[in-house]
């Protein structure tokens, strides 16, 4: 079973829920798909036992063969091929999407590819949770290829929990596409509600079963609960604001680790999701 933990709005507690659920459901594989800002291991606090480079194919132009015909630059949909006539032709690293089109259009066979490192895949393990984390280099613009690669590395037959990137854009589609169930973490504020509605559009279009967790459930209004009734989406859990949870979180300790009560609650949550699926 694959369960993705997502949220429209950032900072609602996705990672807290994902790591707590992973500790409760162990043995389990946890994927940190928020590759721009991966935080799951801040809460899991495991030591890294392996890391591999993540690279994408990148065009290299042979200056001896190139005759500056500009066909590659004309074709490139991203304006990533820079042609300085008579001087130099090269691809701009963070703009190129590795589509391979320039190679196909070059009449002189002057373009080949070599791997270009754009991030890391890190492996951690603690409390019977195997964490696979993607981390793109600062300055890289496109996270999607790395997110896709994480899903290619899923171990067979293991239960998987995915900590998704925030928002409702394509990177969220990539990280919920293979899920059997999606948990949406929100907070009872106008921002939380607005972004939850956007995230539900993604899960609706992918036809995924969803449940809602309301974090800091006592700080705001009841509009999330009204929405959940209207749309018949179960509220799986409510986590009231607690300065203890906030303080432990700030030090990288999730509720399921420091509190027996919350550990039980997250075990119940996991069983509840298994029953729904």
């Amino acid at each position: 079973m694959i369960v993705s933990v997502a949220s429209g709005k950032g900072g609602t507690g996705k990672t807290t829920v994902a790591v707590s659920m992973a500790i409760a459901a162990a043995p389990v594989t946890l994927i940190d798909a928020d590759v721009e800002e991966p935080n799951a291991n801040i809460l899991l606090r495991a030591s890294k036992h392996d890391a591999t480079d993540f690279s994408v194919p990148f065009p290299i132009v042979d200056p001896l063969r190139c005759d500056y015909c500009e066909k590659c630059a004309e074709f490139c949909a991203y304006n990533a091929m820079i042609v300085l006539k008579g001087l130099k032709v090269f691809a701009a690293p963070e703009i190129c999407k590795s589509c391979g089109g320039c190679i196909l259009v070059c009449p002189k066979d002057a373009i080949s590819e070599k791997p270009r490192k754009m991030g890391l895949i890190n492996y951690y393990s603690r409390l019977n949770v195997n964490l696979i984390e993607g981390e793109i280099n600062v300055g890289e613009a496109v996270a999607k290829p790395l997110i896709n690669e994480l899903f290619r590395r899923l171990p067979e037959g293991n239960d998987v929990i995915v900590d998704c990137p925030p928002g409702s854009a394509h990177s969220v589609v990539e990280s919920t596409r293979s899920a059997d169930f999606v948990v949406l973490v929100t907070e009872p504020t106008p921002f939380g509600l607005h972004d939850l509605i956007e995230a539900l559009k993604v899960t609706d279009s992918l036809k995924k079963p969803v449940g809602i967790i309301i974090n800091r459930s006592d700080i705001g209004d009841d509009k999330i609960e009204i929405l959940s009734k209207e749309k018949s989406i179960p509220i799986l859990m409510k986590i009231p604001y607690s300065s203890e949870i906030a303080s432990k979180y700030s030090q990288g300790i999730p509720p399921a680790e420091f509190s027996d009560y919350w550990r039980e609650e997250f075990i119940k949550l996991w069983h509840n999701i298994m029953e729904i699926v």
Partner: peptide
């Protein structure tokens, strides 16, 4: 309005 690489593209245009 280029999403990225405006510096590259503009410099290229002026060079050419």
């Amino acid at each position: 309005n280029a999403a990225g690489g405006a510096g590259y593209a503009t410099a290229q245009m002026l060079a050419n």
